[in-house]
Design a protein around this nucleic acid. Structure first.
Lengths: 187, 187
DNA sequence: GTCTATATGTAGATAGAC
DNA sequence: GTCTATCTACATATAGAC
């Protein structure tokens, strides 16, 4: 694959990732992606045979990005509890986008669960990444119910993101985030 | 509107409501609704001019159904706390459907928020119905933070539904529900 | 490797016969 | 009121010229 080819490949994945988040997977057309990526429509069938293939690439890319985020958090916060608190703030941190489009992971999962179960399973890797990481941090705190607590935290963040988005309520987003941080402190 | 007409109208709304839940609004075609309702495709343009009109009718119908549910809960449980506990169990109560398709209200809101904000606003009435009812029950318990608590509860239920669906995890669904009931008891 | 032209299907919606 | 035939737009996907 040539230099130019790699660049185009990246542009497609980048454009698709943003559109899948903002418009949803099914509501995003090849035309949308092509014009956002600045490429003629027919061209990227050279890189991806189907739309599903693009989604897979988007998921892989998001996984890599998130792994980078987790590594950064670990470097920033030596204590497990602080790392977990950092996660608890994730929705409030991306406030504008969450209010407008919801959680990138949660909304993708919701959409795919309806009629594209195989793709949802692949998107589930994004949830797994956070769940596994949280479980490790909680285990480091000496919790033997680390997995349950990790999933509880995940669910809380998903819930507040969804409801904040539904009501376009930034106050709720911050209040529920503060509540969640207190919960982390109480562990 | 004739007898026959009313029957057809009901059949369309009924079929559409189920399909919008199971397949999503955008993924449901007129053809899908027509065959589910047992009517020729072109026919129900007599009843509804656009697909959006059908969604509005579906929302209205769900609102009526839910109002009936709330009235039944009130009759069944005289105490506000018991009524709130009843709400906390709602996802676990509809376990099979929640695991497969998620929460009917939450997933609809997520889908519409992306590219159909006006419709999402109308679907928000479903959330409002629960939020207002919960607020009344919490106020009856003497809580002056009734609105916040109502939205907190709503968010918790949404979160556990979404994550239980994502992982197809019925154990998580029940465990988080039990946790939520304990939270209600602690109020 | 890149792009145009086009194939093929299906979406929502309409016109008009009955 | 009911149903068939059909319109237009746009979706994913392909073939093949450059």
């Amino acid at each position: 694959m040539s230099e130019k080819g790699q660049v185009n490949w990246q542009r497609i994945v980048e454009a698709a990732s943003q559109l899948f988040y903002r418009k949803g997977y099914n509501q995003t057309s090849f035309t949308d992606i092509a014009s956002a990526a600045g490429l003629p429509r027919g061209n990227f069938y050279y890189y991806f045979k189907t739309k599903d293939d693009i989604l897979e690439a988007v998921i892989q890319r998001r996984l890599e990005d998130l792994r980078g985020v987790l590594v950064a958090w670990e470097a920033e916060h030596p204590q497990p509890r602080e790392r977990i608190r950092r996660f608890a703030r994730i929705a409030a941190d991306g406030q504008q986008d969450v209010l407008r489009y919801g959680c990138p992971i949660g909304t993708l999962s919701v959409e795919l669960s309806k009629t594209q179960a195989p793709l949802q399973a692949k998107a589930g890797a994004l949830f797994d990444l956070f769940a596994d990481w949280l479980e490790i941090q909680l285990a480091a705190m000496g919790r033997d119910d680390a997995r349950q607590l990790a999933l509880h935290l995940l669910a809380r963040v998903q819930g507040l993101s969804l409801v904040a988005n539904a009501f376009s309520d930034s106050v709720l987003l911050r209040r529920e985030t503060a509540d969640l941080e207190r919960w982390v402190d109480s562990l």
